[in-house]
Structure formats: structure tokens, C-alpha cells
Simulated scan of single mutants.
Amino acid sequence: MREVWLDGSPDAVSALTRAVAEALDGGPAVLPLNAGDPSAKTLRAAMAPDDPVEPGTAVLIATSGSTGAPKGVLLSASALRASATATHARLGGPGHWLLATPAHYIGGLQVLVRALLAGTTPAVLTGDGFRPDDFAAAAATLSTADGPRYTALVPTQLVRLLDSPAGLAAARSFDAIVIGAAATSAGLRERAAEAGVRIVPAYGMSETASGCVYDGVPLDGVRIELDDDRIRIAGDVLAHGYRRQPELTAESFGDGWFRTSDRGRFTEDGRLRVLGRVDDVINTGGVKVSAAAIERVLGAQPGVREACVVGVPHPEWGEAVVALVVPGGASCDGGDLRAAVKSELGAACAPKRVEFAPELPLRGPGKIDRMAVRDRFRAEMAP
């Protein structure tokens, strides 16, 4: 297995691109790792790179996931190719890509795979953090490229671009921006549309070689079904298991299907709507409520840019519903937000407390760090 340590430099991204190209053609499996992550050495050790890799593996995506337990997703060359090919077919054909998310996560790595299959050289956003001016400079290197121009972002990055004149102009220059890693709120969709930015919200994960459902519609070759509201996925994009975890592999993969930890439903026009994780249900006063549903209502209110809803222990209610909100634009009031949730979802769903912050804590490729939000409220609401 070939390890590639990414330090934010173009040279490291080039080394990973070459390694992935060889792996797609049958070369050694690749394990990308983040050199700036203090836990990367522990994650590497769990992947046992010195031991033979499971047959058919081209790329091993190592992650700690939402539980903090190391997990390695085994992806074949055929799964990576199927995902990239189907993505190009949905977006408008092979094109030029800007890498703006970390390449050791599947969303960033797939940008490299798509560029390889398109025969183009990806532009690379380097450095620490995400700054709209840097994004605009990187996007400008694609301004003379023939053919479609694409990039992939997480919702927080898109928000920052919409707030910046230079970032907004750069975002408008792309034929499509794939938005993944976290849910795209209705309010953010509307902001992007009004600003003339074409976004394509994507649902997927490492186990599906990145996004496999675009704007509610599965990519070509992908099948979706619901098993008691839990989303199951089939198709050529699937991973073939987890590194050195046969029990977890057997639990999650079987008969050509991958059983996710997400709940969903189909809308009247047949699109998949992701309702949240199976474990996002909050039991408050004996009533089970969905954190994701409350977040959708909050995100649709004027003056709300982002929202995270969690449950925290409470001596009376068992769990109390609380919300951390990022304001933006129009002013918003905690009482008004609670009233809006109560009106639409019922009294049990109304947050017992609403607090405001300039941004939500994040982990990984842009996912909200719910544990950090929960810890913030837990300390404040302790009896």
C-alpha cells in the first residue's frame, strides 16, 4: 500500500494524483493521509499499511467518522471510475475541476479522479483555511480552459463565497458546483439561485465513492430503496467493505446493497429527501422528534444562515432540544425562532434554548461537529 501524506502543498496533491492514476490502472493501493491532523498517526496505524490490502482495492479512505472509531473504506478502481463517469454525465460532460476540499477525504479525492478521467489538470486551492480571495485566484487559472468548469464544496464554503464579492464572481464562473459532506438548507439553495450560482446538492459518502444522488436523483447505475425509512444504496459505485473489519463489512454490505445510517423518504416527484441520521432523533418528554426536521424549519427563517439542533440531558425532559444558530442578513430572535418551530412541528420540537454564534464548529470535510455543540449546551444546562 502506498501512503501519501498531504500537507496542503501543490506538490503533495500532484504526488497523490500520480499515485491514484497508477492505482486506477492496477498499481498499488493508495492511502491518503492528512499531515496536519494530530490524530493522523493513530488513524494510519489502524489502517495497517504494512499488511496486505484486501483484494481489488485501489484507494483506502481512512476516517474516524461520527463516532471517533477509525474506519477504512475500501474502494476499487471500478467504483471510483463509475462514480466519476456518472458525475460527468449528470453535470454536462467531462471538464476542468478546481480542488477546493481536502484530498484525503472522498469528496476531494474524487475531484482528482474526475480530472484524470477527463484528461485535464485540476486547479488546486492550497494553504490553510478557506478564503474567498484565494478561491477566486485559483478559479481564475481555469478562466481560459475550454469546456465545462466544475468544483466541489461544502455548504460552509459556499456561504463564505456568497458573502464575498470576489468569491461570488468566482462561483458564478463555474458551470456547476457540487455541494456535499453536509445537508444544503433551503435557504442556502435560494441564496445561490438568486445570486446566479449553479449548485448541485449531492448525497453520498465514502462507501459510495462520493456523491451518488444529485439533487434527489440517483446517478446513472445507482439504485435507492428505503428499508423502514433507512436508506439503502446499490450500484457500481459501492465500496467492497471496511479495512480489517469483516463484522462491520457484513453488517453494512450484503446482496449488492449498502445500508446507510440515514433516514429518507421519496417526494411526490420521486426525489430522495434525506431526513437525517437514524441517531439524530431526540426523545424529549417521551416524544421523539427529528433534529434534522427542526434544522430545516430554522434554516428557512429570515436571518438564519445555518443551524444545528441537538438533544442534551435534562432532569425534567430526559433530553432538551437546543439549537445553535448562525445569523446572517436580517436580524433574528430566539423567541421568534422557537415560535416558528412550534407552529410548524409542534410544541415538543420547539428548542428549549436558542443560542447564536458566528459559525458552527466543524469536523472533517465540513460536517457539523454535533458533539462540540452538545458539549457547549451540556455545560450550560447542567443542574
Score class of each variant (00 low, 15 high):
8 G>V: 03
200 V>I: 12
168 L>E: 09
109 L>D: 01
90 R>M: 04
13 V>Q: 12
85 T>V: 15
94 P>F: 04
229 D>M: 10
119 G>Y: 11
40 A>S: 14
337 L>P: 04
321 V>N: 02
162 L>P: 06
279 D>W: 03
378 R>L: 14
65 G>I: 02
245 Q>I: 01
291 A>F: 05
211 G>W: 05
203 Y>F: 15
343 S>W: 03
162 L>S: 13
114 R>A: 13
64 S>H: 07
122 P>K: 00
304 V>H: 06
362 L>A: 06
153 L>K: 00
356 F>A: 09
26 G>H: 12
63 T>P: 06
218 P>T: 05
191 R>P: 00
150 Y>V: 12
235 G>W: 00
164 S>G: 13
17 T>W: 08
129 G>A: 11
367 K>F: 05
267 T>E: 09
341 V>K: 11
13 V>D: 13
26 G>I: 13
63 T>G: 10
173 S>T: 12
242 Y>W: 05
381 M>C: 05
295 E>V: 07
12 A>W: 06
369 D>Y: 01
334 G>T: 05
149 R>F: 11
260 T>Q: 07
26 G>W: 00
195 A>P: 03
251 E>M: 07
12 A>D: 08
195 A>D: 11
10 P>F: 03
139 A>N: 09
251 E>Y: 06
380 E>W: 09
321 V>R: 03
290 S>F: 06
250 A>V: 04
306 E>A: 15
69 A>C: 04
170 A>M: 14
168 L>H: 08
